[in-house]
């Protein structure tokens, strides 16, 4: 009831010019959609969202797989390190965002402090205030927070691979690279598919972080924050709802695509 009704309501609203509060609104048909298609800000939000998602996807997947391979054995140190890496997952995105406002601070931030110490102070960008940099700074924070979580999925996948396969490979004299390519990687594919699917969806929903760090300024508006700002700051509910419908279609397409990939892999 809370799922079907909003879908229909969103679609119905997207055909109007409603401002969110008055009872006075008109049916405008597909006007909102033609306007969306030509709206440079909405297009930019989609572009930013794609850049954000791809950056997080690449770094988070590679990094978490690497860490999982290093920490797969259940030794005492490994378990402690996993617990540390997982820690940011339990912290609110708002708190994480504020912690990184501190890290990114141009004068007192640790990132610029570290660059200064290395004699690279001149290279320091304006992490959150440069339209070509800010979205990648946000991506950094996103995968800082979630790499440890995704690593756990990889570790579970790695631990599910039967030991005898590795023993057989060792007896056959396979190198480490060969073993990874012909045993680990193919058997890890289902876990990898879950990670890729999860990470992608998660990045499209990274609302709290963007609101906290930049509130969409400096070219960091993603689709979810665009909907929020359009509906709740500019009171264009109908127009925002049209954006929601497009967002829904994008997410639906991504999800079904990923389900298909998952099935192919199994």
């Amino acid at each position: 009831m809370f799922l079907v009704a909003p879908t229909l309501a969103a679609f119905a609203m997207s055909l109007t010019d409603w401002n969110g509060s008055s009872n006075d609104f008109a049916f405008v048909g597909a006007d909102n959609y033609t306007r969306l298609a030509a709206d440079p800000i909405f297009r930019q939000a989609i572009g930013t969202n794609v850049r954000f998602s791809l950056t997080v996807l690449v770094f988070q997947t590679v990094l978490s797989l690497g860490l999982a391979l290093l920490l797969v054995r259940n030794t005492r140190t490994n378990v402690a390190l996993r617990a540390l890496y997982f820690l940011p997952t339990v912290v609110a995105a708002v708190s994480v965002g504020l912690a990184w406002i501190l890290m990114f601070d141009p004068n007192f931030g640790a990132l610029n402090g570290a660059l200064d110490a290395l004699g690279l102070g001149d290279l320091a960008p304006s992490w959150l205030g440069d339209t070509s940099v800010a979205v990648y700074s946000l991506a950094l924070v996103q995968f800082w927070q979630h790499t440890g979580q995704v690593m756990i999925i990889f570790i579970a996948g790695l631990q599910a691979i039967p030991r005898d396969l590795y023993e057989a490979a060792a007896i056959d004299g396979a190198t480490k690279g060969q073993t990874f390519r012909s045993i680990t990687w193919p058997l890890l594919a289902p876990a990898a598919a879950i990670v890729v699917a999860y990470t992608t969806i998660q990045t499209f929903k990274a609302f709290d972080l963007v609101i906290t760090l930049t509130d969409g300024a400096f070219n960091t508006e993603i689709i979810s924050t665009w909907i929020y700002h359009t509906a709740f700051q500019y009171f264009q509910f109908g127009y925002g709802a049209a954006g929601s419908v497009v967002f829904l279609i994008i997410l639906g397409a991504l999800t079904s695509l990923q389900f298909r990939i998952l099935r192919v892999d199994q």
Partner: peptide, 18 residues
Amino acid sequence: VGGLMVAPQVYMTPLFVI
């Protein structure tokens, strides 16, 4: 479980109306 497909961010406007 069909509800898993739904991102609340998509529904912020209609949810607010409801």
